[in-house]
Design a protein around this nucleic acid. Structure first.
Lengths: 243, 243
DNA sequence: GGAAGGAGAAAGGACGTCCCATCTCCTGTA
DNA sequence: TACAGGAGATGGGACGTCCTTTCTCCTTCC
Protein backbone atom coordinates (compact mmCIF):
# COMPACT_ATOMS: atom_id res chain seq x y z
CA UNK A 1 0.00 0.00 0.00
CA UNK A 2 1.44 3.29 -1.07
CA UNK A 3 0.84 6.55 0.65
CA UNK A 4 -1.28 9.16 -1.04
CA UNK A 5 0.92 11.18 -3.39
CA UNK A 6 -0.40 14.44 -1.98
CA UNK A 7 0.65 13.44 1.50
CA UNK A 8 4.16 12.63 0.41
CA UNK A 9 4.72 15.78 -1.56
CA UNK A 10 3.36 18.04 1.15
CA UNK A 11 5.36 16.21 3.74
CA UNK A 12 8.56 16.75 1.85
CA UNK A 13 7.71 20.34 1.11
CA UNK A 14 9.28 22.04 4.07
CA UNK A 15 12.19 19.66 4.37
CA UNK A 16 13.26 19.80 0.75
CA UNK A 17 12.61 23.47 0.18
CA UNK A 18 14.72 24.85 2.98
CA UNK A 19 18.04 23.54 1.79
CA UNK A 20 17.26 24.54 -1.77
CA UNK A 21 16.21 27.97 -0.57
CA UNK A 22 19.61 28.47 0.96
CA UNK A 23 21.28 27.56 -2.31
CA UNK A 24 19.04 30.00 -4.11
CA UNK A 25 19.86 32.72 -1.61
CA UNK A 26 23.55 32.26 -2.23
CA UNK A 27 23.06 32.37 -5.98
CA UNK A 28 20.97 35.51 -5.72
CA UNK A 29 23.59 37.04 -3.50
CA UNK A 30 26.06 36.50 -6.31
CA UNK A 31 23.73 38.03 -8.86
CA UNK A 32 22.82 40.98 -6.65
CA UNK A 33 26.41 41.88 -5.96
CA UNK A 34 27.20 41.72 -9.62
CA UNK A 35 29.85 39.08 -9.16
CA UNK A 36 31.09 37.64 -12.40
CA UNK A 37 32.96 34.52 -13.41
CA UNK A 38 36.19 34.38 -11.45
CA UNK A 39 35.13 36.82 -8.75
CA UNK A 40 35.51 35.78 -5.14
CA UNK A 41 32.55 35.01 -2.91
CA UNK A 42 32.42 35.97 0.75
CA UNK A 43 34.17 33.47 3.00
CA UNK A 44 32.25 30.64 4.56
CA UNK A 45 32.20 32.41 7.89
CA UNK A 46 30.91 35.62 6.34
CA UNK A 47 28.19 33.79 4.47
CA UNK A 48 27.29 31.95 7.62
CA UNK A 49 26.90 35.23 9.45
CA UNK A 50 25.13 37.09 6.66
CA UNK A 51 22.63 34.36 5.95
CA UNK A 52 22.07 33.62 9.60
CA UNK A 53 22.80 29.91 9.39
CA UNK A 54 25.56 27.73 10.76
CA UNK A 55 28.79 27.25 8.90
CA UNK A 56 28.20 23.53 8.36
CA UNK A 57 24.82 24.27 6.86
CA UNK A 58 26.20 26.86 4.52
CA UNK A 59 28.97 24.46 3.60
CA UNK A 60 26.45 21.83 2.56
CA UNK A 61 24.84 24.31 0.23
CA UNK A 62 28.18 25.45 -1.10
CA UNK A 63 29.18 21.89 -1.88
CA UNK A 64 25.96 21.47 -3.82
CA UNK A 65 26.61 24.67 -5.75
CA UNK A 66 30.09 23.39 -6.49
CA UNK A 67 28.63 20.13 -7.73
CA UNK A 68 26.22 22.05 -9.95
CA UNK A 69 29.15 23.95 -11.43
CA UNK A 70 28.04 27.29 -10.03
CA UNK A 71 31.04 27.97 -7.83
CA UNK A 72 34.59 26.78 -7.58
CA UNK A 73 36.12 26.09 -4.18
CA UNK A 74 39.85 26.40 -3.69
CA UNK A 75 41.10 25.06 -0.42
CA UNK A 76 42.98 27.64 1.57
CA UNK A 77 42.20 30.44 -0.83
CA UNK A 78 38.51 31.06 -1.24
CA UNK A 79 35.44 30.45 -3.34
CA UNK A 80 34.84 31.86 -6.78
CA UNK A 81 32.12 32.04 -9.37
CA UNK A 82 32.93 29.15 -11.67
CA UNK A 83 33.17 29.14 -15.44
CA UNK A 84 30.68 26.97 -17.22
CA UNK A 85 31.28 23.42 -16.22
CA UNK A 86 29.03 20.41 -16.51
CA UNK A 87 31.44 17.81 -15.26
CA UNK A 88 29.27 17.35 -12.19
CA UNK A 89 26.55 15.80 -14.26
CA UNK A 90 28.86 13.06 -15.33
CA UNK A 91 28.97 11.22 -12.04
CA UNK A 92 25.23 11.42 -11.52
CA UNK A 93 24.42 10.21 -15.00
CA UNK A 94 27.02 7.49 -14.83
CA UNK A 95 25.42 6.20 -11.66
CA UNK A 96 22.04 6.20 -13.36
CA UNK A 97 23.41 4.32 -16.30
CA UNK A 98 25.14 1.69 -14.22
CA UNK A 99 22.07 1.27 -12.07
CA UNK A 100 19.95 0.69 -15.14
CA UNK A 101 22.35 -1.86 -16.54
CA UNK A 102 21.34 -4.22 -13.77
CA UNK A 103 17.94 -4.42 -15.41
CA UNK A 104 17.96 -4.06 -19.13
CA UNK A 105 20.30 -1.17 -19.57
CA UNK A 106 17.48 1.01 -20.78
CA UNK A 107 18.78 4.24 -19.38
CA UNK A 108 22.21 3.69 -20.81
CA UNK A 109 20.61 3.11 -24.19
CA UNK A 110 18.54 6.24 -23.80
CA UNK A 111 21.75 8.14 -23.29
CA UNK A 112 23.10 6.86 -26.58
CA UNK A 113 19.81 7.72 -28.23
CA UNK A 114 20.02 11.31 -27.07
CA UNK A 115 23.61 11.59 -28.20
CA UNK A 116 22.70 10.13 -31.56
CA UNK A 117 19.78 12.48 -31.98
CA UNK A 118 21.86 15.50 -31.03
CA UNK A 119 24.85 14.68 -33.16
CA UNK A 120 23.24 13.33 -36.30
CA UNK A 121 20.59 16.03 -36.07
CA UNK A 122 23.04 18.88 -35.75
CA UNK A 123 25.74 17.81 -38.15
CA UNK A 124 23.90 19.55 -40.98
CA UNK A 125 23.99 22.92 -39.24
CA UNK A 126 27.60 22.35 -38.29
CA UNK A 127 28.56 21.70 -41.91
CA UNK A 128 26.80 24.89 -42.94
CA UNK A 129 29.00 26.90 -40.62
CA UNK A 130 32.18 24.92 -41.18
CA UNK A 131 35.25 26.94 -42.12
CA UNK A 132 38.60 25.81 -43.47
CA UNK A 133 40.10 26.31 -40.03
CA UNK A 134 37.59 24.01 -38.42
CA UNK A 135 38.26 21.40 -41.05
CA UNK A 136 41.99 21.65 -40.48
CA UNK A 137 41.49 21.18 -36.75
CA UNK A 138 39.35 18.19 -37.40
CA UNK A 139 41.94 16.71 -39.71
CA UNK A 140 44.77 17.14 -37.24
CA UNK A 141 42.65 15.45 -34.59
CA UNK A 142 42.10 12.53 -36.95
CA UNK A 143 45.80 12.36 -37.64
CA UNK A 144 46.51 12.24 -33.91
CA UNK A 145 43.93 9.51 -33.50
CA UNK A 146 45.50 7.47 -36.26
CA UNK A 147 48.95 7.90 -34.74
CA UNK A 148 47.65 6.75 -31.39
CA UNK A 149 46.01 3.73 -32.96
CA UNK A 150 49.27 2.81 -34.69
CA UNK A 151 50.99 2.78 -31.32
CA UNK A 152 48.21 0.79 -29.77
CA UNK A 153 47.32 3.63 -27.46
CA UNK A 154 43.74 4.19 -26.30
CA UNK A 155 41.70 6.41 -28.59
CA UNK A 156 39.30 7.70 -25.97
CA UNK A 157 40.64 11.23 -25.73
CA UNK A 158 41.03 11.64 -29.46
CA UNK A 159 37.55 10.27 -29.97
CA UNK A 160 36.12 12.86 -27.59
CA UNK A 161 38.14 15.60 -29.23
CA UNK A 162 36.87 14.63 -32.67
CA UNK A 163 33.26 14.89 -31.64
CA UNK A 164 33.95 18.13 -29.82
CA UNK A 165 35.53 19.74 -32.85
CA UNK A 166 32.88 18.42 -35.17
CA UNK A 167 30.40 20.78 -33.56
CA UNK A 168 32.75 23.65 -32.82
CA UNK A 169 31.38 25.63 -35.81
CA UNK A 170 28.04 25.93 -34.02
CA UNK A 171 29.82 28.04 -31.41
CA UNK A 172 27.58 26.70 -28.66
CA UNK A 173 29.39 26.04 -25.41
CA UNK A 174 26.37 24.48 -23.79
CA UNK A 175 26.00 21.97 -26.57
CA UNK A 176 29.67 21.05 -26.50
CA UNK A 177 29.54 20.59 -22.75
CA UNK A 178 26.42 18.49 -22.98
CA UNK A 179 27.89 16.24 -25.63
CA UNK A 180 31.05 15.94 -23.62
CA UNK A 181 29.05 14.85 -20.60
CA UNK A 182 27.28 12.18 -22.61
CA UNK A 183 30.52 11.00 -24.08
CA UNK A 184 32.18 10.70 -20.69
CA UNK A 185 29.22 8.92 -19.18
CA UNK A 186 29.22 6.39 -21.98
CA UNK A 187 32.92 5.85 -21.55
CA UNK A 188 32.68 5.40 -17.78
CA UNK A 189 29.80 2.98 -18.07
CA UNK A 190 31.76 1.08 -20.64
CA UNK A 191 34.82 0.96 -18.44
CA UNK A 192 32.81 -0.05 -15.40
CA UNK A 193 31.49 -2.99 -17.34
CA UNK A 194 34.96 -3.98 -18.40
CA UNK A 195 35.48 -3.14 -22.01
CA UNK A 196 36.20 -6.03 -24.29
CA UNK A 197 38.90 -6.02 -26.96
CA UNK A 198 38.57 -3.06 -29.27
CA UNK A 199 39.50 -2.91 -32.89
CA UNK A 200 41.53 0.28 -33.09
CA UNK A 201 41.84 0.35 -36.88
CA UNK A 202 38.09 -0.05 -37.27
CA UNK A 203 37.47 2.81 -34.87
CA UNK A 204 39.80 5.08 -36.78
CA UNK A 205 38.25 4.11 -40.12
CA UNK A 206 34.75 4.93 -38.89
CA UNK A 207 35.90 8.41 -37.91
CA UNK A 208 37.74 8.89 -41.19
CA UNK A 209 34.53 8.04 -43.01
CA UNK A 210 32.68 10.70 -41.05
CA UNK A 211 35.47 13.16 -41.71
CA UNK A 212 35.29 12.53 -45.43
CA UNK A 213 31.58 13.11 -45.51
CA UNK A 214 32.05 16.38 -43.65
CA UNK A 215 34.94 17.38 -45.88
CA UNK A 216 32.71 16.82 -48.89
CA UNK A 217 29.98 18.87 -47.21
CA UNK A 218 27.60 15.98 -47.77
CA UNK A 219 25.14 16.53 -44.95
CA UNK A 220 23.03 13.46 -45.62
CA UNK A 221 26.03 11.16 -45.81
CA UNK A 222 27.59 12.62 -42.68
CA UNK A 223 24.35 12.24 -40.80
CA UNK A 224 23.95 8.67 -41.97
CA UNK A 225 27.50 7.71 -41.04
CA UNK A 226 27.13 9.28 -37.62
CA UNK A 227 23.90 7.38 -37.23
CA UNK A 228 25.69 4.14 -38.05
CA UNK A 229 28.54 5.02 -35.73
CA UNK A 230 26.07 5.21 -32.88
CA UNK A 231 24.31 2.06 -33.95
CA UNK A 232 27.66 0.35 -33.52
CA UNK A 233 28.17 1.87 -30.10
CA UNK A 234 24.71 0.73 -29.08
CA UNK A 235 25.39 -2.80 -30.17
CA UNK A 236 28.66 -2.92 -28.33
CA UNK A 237 27.03 -1.67 -25.16
CA UNK A 238 24.28 -4.23 -25.44
CA UNK A 239 26.88 -6.89 -26.03
CA UNK A 240 28.88 -6.03 -22.94
CA UNK A 241 25.78 -5.65 -20.79
CA UNK A 242 24.60 -9.12 -21.75
CA UNK A 243 27.80 -10.76 -20.61
CA UNK B 1 41.61 4.53 14.39
CA UNK B 2 43.10 3.15 11.21
CA UNK B 3 40.59 3.06 8.43
CA UNK B 4 40.98 1.46 5.03
CA UNK B 5 44.52 1.97 3.75
CA UNK B 6 43.16 3.10 0.41
CA UNK B 7 41.58 6.12 2.04
CA UNK B 8 44.89 7.28 3.43
CA UNK B 9 46.87 6.92 0.23
CA UNK B 10 44.76 9.49 -1.59
CA UNK B 11 45.60 12.09 1.02
CA UNK B 12 48.02 13.91 -1.21
CA UNK B 13 45.41 14.70 -3.81
CA UNK B 14 43.48 17.90 -3.68
CA UNK B 15 40.49 18.30 -1.47
CA UNK B 16 38.18 18.51 -4.43
CA UNK B 17 39.15 15.03 -5.50
CA UNK B 18 38.63 13.68 -2.03
CA UNK B 19 35.09 14.93 -1.61
CA UNK B 20 34.24 13.61 -5.04
CA UNK B 21 35.79 10.30 -4.09
CA UNK B 22 33.49 10.11 -1.11
CA UNK B 23 30.48 10.66 -3.33
CA UNK B 24 31.72 7.94 -5.63
CA UNK B 25 32.22 5.58 -2.70
CA UNK B 26 28.64 6.09 -1.63
CA UNK B 27 27.38 5.48 -5.15
CA UNK B 28 29.45 2.34 -5.44
CA UNK B 29 28.19 1.19 -2.09
CA UNK B 30 24.68 1.45 -3.51
CA UNK B 31 25.66 -0.46 -6.62
CA UNK B 32 27.56 -3.13 -4.70
CA UNK B 33 24.70 -3.81 -2.36
CA UNK B 34 22.32 -4.14 -5.24
CA UNK B 35 20.09 -1.36 -4.00
CA UNK B 36 17.47 -0.32 -6.50
CA UNK B 37 15.27 2.72 -6.94
CA UNK B 38 13.24 3.22 -3.78
CA UNK B 39 15.48 1.11 -1.56
CA UNK B 40 16.76 2.63 1.66
CA UNK B 41 20.37 3.60 2.18
CA UNK B 42 22.17 3.11 5.48
CA UNK B 43 21.56 5.92 7.93
CA UNK B 44 23.90 8.87 8.09
CA UNK B 45 25.52 7.50 11.21
CA UNK B 46 26.04 4.08 9.66
CA UNK B 47 27.56 5.59 6.54
CA UNK B 48 29.76 7.77 8.69
CA UNK B 49 31.03 4.70 10.52
CA UNK B 50 31.39 2.46 7.47
CA UNK B 51 33.18 5.03 5.36
CA UNK B 52 35.38 6.17 8.21
CA UNK B 53 34.50 9.86 7.92
CA UNK B 54 32.62 12.25 10.13
CA UNK B 55 28.89 12.57 9.92
CA UNK B 56 29.02 16.19 8.77
CA UNK B 57 31.40 15.23 6.01
CA UNK B 58 29.19 12.41 4.84
CA UNK B 59 26.23 14.75 5.01
CA UNK B 60 27.91 17.15 2.59
CA UNK B 61 28.36 14.34 0.12
CA UNK B 62 24.81 13.15 0.61
CA UNK B 63 23.48 16.61 -0.09
CA UNK B 64 25.44 16.67 -3.32
CA UNK B 65 24.09 13.27 -4.32
CA UNK B 66 20.63 14.54 -3.56
CA UNK B 67 21.25 17.56 -5.76
CA UNK B 68 22.46 15.30 -8.55
CA UNK B 69 19.24 13.31 -8.31
CA UNK B 70 20.97 10.15 -7.12
CA UNK B 71 19.31 9.87 -3.73
CA UNK B 72 16.21 11.20 -2.08
CA UNK B 73 16.35 12.38 1.53
CA UNK B 74 13.26 12.29 3.68
CA UNK B 75 13.62 14.05 6.99
CA UNK B 76 12.95 11.77 9.93
CA UNK B 77 12.56 8.69 7.78
CA UNK B 78 15.67 7.92 5.84
CA UNK B 79 17.47 8.16 2.53
CA UNK B 80 16.50 6.28 -0.61
CA UNK B 81 17.77 5.66 -4.09
CA UNK B 82 15.90 8.24 -6.13
CA UNK B 83 13.97 7.74 -9.34
CA UNK B 84 15.43 9.57 -12.29
CA UNK B 85 15.12 13.23 -11.62
CA UNK B 86 16.95 16.11 -13.18
CA UNK B 87 15.13 18.90 -11.43
CA UNK B 88 18.25 19.82 -9.52
CA UNK B 89 19.97 20.84 -12.70
CA UNK B 90 17.40 23.50 -13.26
CA UNK B 91 18.66 25.84 -10.58
CA UNK B 92 22.25 25.55 -11.73
CA UNK B 93 21.44 26.18 -15.35
CA UNK B 94 19.11 29.01 -14.46
CA UNK B 95 21.89 30.68 -12.55
CA UNK B 96 24.18 30.30 -15.55
CA UNK B 97 21.58 31.80 -17.83
CA UNK B 98 20.88 34.76 -15.61
CA UNK B 99 24.57 35.38 -15.14
CA UNK B 100 25.10 35.40 -18.87
CA UNK B 101 22.25 37.82 -19.44
CA UNK B 102 24.29 40.51 -17.76
CA UNK B 103 26.60 40.37 -20.73
CA UNK B 104 24.98 39.46 -23.98
CA UNK B 105 22.75 36.62 -22.93
CA UNK B 106 24.76 34.19 -24.99
CA UNK B 107 24.34 31.23 -22.71
CA UNK B 108 20.62 31.68 -22.50
CA UNK B 109 20.49 31.73 -26.29
CA UNK B 110 22.60 28.61 -26.46
CA UNK B 111 20.07 26.90 -24.29
CA UNK B 112 17.32 27.76 -26.73
CA UNK B 113 19.53 26.56 -29.57
CA UNK B 114 20.00 23.18 -27.97
CA UNK B 115 16.31 22.85 -27.28
CA UNK B 116 15.54 23.79 -30.83
CA UNK B 117 18.02 21.31 -32.22
CA UNK B 118 16.72 18.53 -30.01
CA UNK B 119 13.06 19.14 -30.63
CA UNK B 120 13.00 19.97 -34.30
CA UNK B 121 15.55 17.26 -34.93
CA UNK B 122 13.64 14.55 -33.14
CA UNK B 123 10.10 15.36 -34.18
CA UNK B 124 10.51 13.14 -37.24
CA UNK B 125 11.35 10.07 -35.20
CA UNK B 126 8.54 10.88 -32.80
CA UNK B 127 6.02 11.06 -35.63
CA UNK B 128 7.25 7.69 -36.87
CA UNK B 129 6.40 6.11 -33.55
CA UNK B 130 3.26 8.11 -32.90
CA UNK B 131 0.16 6.06 -32.02
CA UNK B 132 -3.48 7.10 -31.84
CA UNK B 133 -3.22 7.15 -28.05
CA UNK B 134 -0.33 9.56 -28.13
CA UNK B 135 -2.23 11.79 -30.50
CA UNK B 136 -5.29 11.74 -28.26
CA UNK B 137 -3.15 12.73 -25.27
CA UNK B 138 -1.65 15.54 -27.27
CA UNK B 139 -5.07 16.74 -28.34
CA UNK B 140 -6.44 16.77 -24.80
CA UNK B 141 -3.42 18.76 -23.69
CA UNK B 142 -4.10 21.27 -26.43
CA UNK B 143 -7.72 21.47 -25.36
CA UNK B 144 -6.66 22.15 -21.79
CA UNK B 145 -4.28 24.83 -23.00
CA UNK B 146 -7.00 26.48 -25.00
CA UNK B 147 -9.38 26.41 -22.04
CA UNK B 148 -6.72 27.99 -19.86
CA UNK B 149 -6.09 30.70 -22.42
CA UNK B 150 -9.82 31.44 -22.60
CA UNK B 151 -9.82 32.03 -18.87
CA UNK B 152 -6.72 34.15 -19.07
CA UNK B 153 -4.76 31.65 -17.00
CA UNK B 154 -1.04 31.14 -17.55
CA UNK B 155 -0.18 28.55 -20.16
CA UNK B 156 3.20 27.57 -18.76
CA UNK B 157 2.25 24.17 -17.41
CA UNK B 158 0.21 23.22 -20.46
CA UNK B 159 3.02 24.37 -22.70
CA UNK B 160 5.47 22.13 -20.87
CA UNK B 161 3.04 19.23 -21.01
CA UNK B 162 2.58 19.66 -24.74
CA UNK B 163 6.26 19.42 -25.45
CA UNK B 164 6.60 16.51 -23.06
CA UNK B 165 3.87 14.52 -24.77
CA UNK B 166 5.12 15.40 -28.21
CA UNK B 167 8.14 13.22 -27.59
CA UNK B 168 6.48 10.58 -25.46
CA UNK B 169 6.43 8.14 -28.42
CA UNK B 170 10.22 7.98 -28.33
CA UNK B 171 9.92 6.34 -24.92
CA UNK B 172 13.09 8.00 -23.73
CA UNK B 173 12.91 9.18 -20.13
CA UNK B 174 16.29 10.85 -20.29
CA UNK B 175 15.27 12.92 -23.26
CA UNK B 176 12.00 13.97 -21.67
CA UNK B 177 13.81 14.95 -18.49
CA UNK B 178 16.41 16.89 -20.40
CA UNK B 179 13.83 18.78 -22.40
CA UNK B 180 11.92 19.49 -19.24
CA UNK B 181 15.01 20.93 -17.65
CA UNK B 182 15.61 23.22 -20.59
CA UNK B 183 11.99 24.27 -20.61
CA UNK B 184 12.03 25.12 -16.93
CA UNK B 185 15.29 27.00 -17.16
CA UNK B 186 13.97 29.09 -20.01
CA UNK B 187 10.82 29.83 -18.05
CA UNK B 188 12.68 30.80 -14.91
CA UNK B 189 15.06 33.07 -16.77
CA UNK B 190 12.10 34.64 -18.48
CA UNK B 191 10.33 35.18 -15.19
CA UNK B 192 13.43 36.55 -13.53
CA UNK B 193 13.67 39.15 -16.27
CA UNK B 194 10.08 40.12 -15.81
CA UNK B 195 8.01 38.77 -18.66
CA UNK B 196 6.20 41.31 -20.72
CA UNK B 197 2.58 41.00 -21.80
CA UNK B 198 1.95 37.73 -23.58
CA UNK B 199 -0.53 37.07 -26.30
CA UNK B 200 -2.29 33.94 -25.10
CA UNK B 201 -4.29 33.32 -28.26
CA UNK B 202 -1.17 33.53 -30.37
CA UNK B 203 0.60 31.05 -28.11
CA UNK B 204 -2.27 28.60 -28.41
CA UNK B 205 -2.41 29.01 -32.18
CA UNK B 206 1.27 28.27 -32.56
CA UNK B 207 0.83 25.02 -30.70
CA UNK B 208 -2.29 24.12 -32.65
CA UNK B 209 -0.29 24.58 -35.83
CA UNK B 210 2.34 22.19 -34.59
CA UNK B 211 -0.35 19.75 -33.53
CA UNK B 212 -1.91 19.84 -36.96
CA UNK B 213 1.37 19.11 -38.67
CA UNK B 214 1.94 16.17 -36.33
CA UNK B 215 -1.62 14.96 -36.83
CA UNK B 216 -1.05 15.02 -40.57
CA UNK B 217 2.24 13.15 -40.06
CA UNK B 218 3.98 15.83 -42.04
CA UNK B 219 7.48 15.62 -40.60
CA UNK B 220 8.95 18.48 -42.58
CA UNK B 221 6.11 20.82 -41.72
CA UNK B 222 6.19 19.88 -38.05
CA UNK B 223 9.92 20.42 -37.92
CA UNK B 224 9.62 23.77 -39.65
CA UNK B 225 6.84 24.97 -37.36
CA UNK B 226 8.79 23.90 -34.29
CA UNK B 227 11.77 25.74 -35.70
CA UNK B 228 9.70 28.88 -36.07
CA UNK B 229 8.25 28.42 -32.60
CA UNK B 230 11.75 28.57 -31.18
CA UNK B 231 12.71 31.48 -33.39
CA UNK B 232 9.86 33.34 -31.73
CA UNK B 233 11.03 32.35 -28.27
CA UNK B 234 14.52 33.51 -29.12
CA UNK B 235 13.30 36.88 -30.29
CA UNK B 236 11.21 37.35 -27.19
CA UNK B 237 14.16 36.54 -24.97
CA UNK B 238 16.39 38.95 -26.82
CA UNK B 239 13.71 41.57 -26.55
CA UNK B 240 13.36 41.23 -22.81
CA UNK B 241 17.10 41.06 -22.26
CA UNK B 242 17.60 44.29 -24.16
CA UNK B 243 15.20 46.22 -21.99
C1' DG C 1 69.34 44.11 -6.39
C1' DG C 2 67.07 39.90 -7.21
C1' DA C 3 65.72 35.34 -6.28
C1' DA C 4 64.86 31.56 -3.05
C1' DG C 5 62.86 30.13 1.08
C1' DG C 6 60.43 30.31 5.41
C1' DA C 7 56.93 32.29 8.78
C1' DG C 8 52.40 33.70 9.38
C1' DA C 9 47.75 34.65 8.15
C1' DA C 10 43.58 33.40 5.98
C1' DA C 11 40.55 30.25 4.20
C1' DG C 12 38.53 25.90 3.62
C1' DG C 13 38.27 20.66 5.51
C1' DA C 14 37.05 17.44 8.94
C1' DC C 15 35.03 15.97 13.17
C1' DG C 16 32.46 15.55 17.55
C1' DT C 17 28.77 16.79 20.20
C1' DC C 18 24.52 18.41 21.41
C1' DC C 19 19.81 19.49 20.61
C1' DC C 20 15.81 20.21 17.43
C1' DA C 21 12.34 18.71 13.80
C1' DT C 22 9.85 15.35 11.58
C1' DC C 23 8.64 11.08 10.22
C1' DT C 24 6.75 6.16 11.04
C1' DC C 25 4.84 2.81 13.77
C1' DC C 26 2.81 0.98 17.67
C1' DT C 27 0.13 1.16 21.58
C1' DG C 28 -3.70 2.31 24.26
C1' DT C 29 -8.06 4.06 25.00
C1' DA C 30 -12.76 5.36 23.80
C1' DT D 1 -12.80 -0.82 15.37
C1' DA D 2 -10.91 3.55 14.87
C1' DC D 3 -8.52 7.36 16.11
C1' DA D 4 -5.19 9.88 19.06
C1' DG D 5 -0.97 10.25 21.01
C1' DG D 6 3.53 8.77 22.43
C1' DA D 7 8.09 6.34 21.62
C1' DG D 8 11.86 5.71 18.88
C1' DA D 9 14.47 6.48 14.92
C1' DT D 10 16.44 9.50 11.61
C1' DG D 11 17.64 13.56 9.33
C1' DG D 12 18.50 18.96 10.17
C1' DG D 13 21.18 22.32 12.20
C1' DA D 14 24.49 24.87 15.07
C1' DC D 15 28.86 25.50 17.48
C1' DG D 16 33.38 24.74 18.65
C1' DT D 17 37.84 22.84 17.82
C1' DC D 18 41.66 21.54 15.35
C1' DC D 19 43.96 20.28 10.84
C1' DT D 20 45.42 21.18 6.00
C1' DT D 21 46.20 23.93 2.22
C1' DT D 22 47.28 28.04 -0.05
C1' DC D 23 48.77 32.59 -0.61
C1' DT D 24 51.46 36.54 0.77
C1' DC D 25 55.07 38.94 2.50
C1' DC D 26 59.27 39.35 4.59
C1' DT D 27 63.67 37.79 5.44
C1' DT D 28 67.92 36.08 3.96
C1' DC D 29 71.42 34.78 1.02
C1' DC D 30 73.82 35.03 -3.30
Amino acid sequence: MTVAPAAVSSARFSAQIRSQALQTRIMELILERGLDVGDALPTESELSAELGVGRNTVRESLKVLQALGVIEIRHGFGMFVAPNNFSALVSGLTFRGRLSLRHKGEEAMELIDVRQALESGLIGSAIDLLTADHLADLRSTMQAMQDAAAKGEPLAEHDAEFHRRLYAPLNNELLINLMDVFWQVYRQIHEALGSGPVNLEEQVQIHWDIYEAVDGRDKALASERLQRHFDGIRLKLKDVAAS
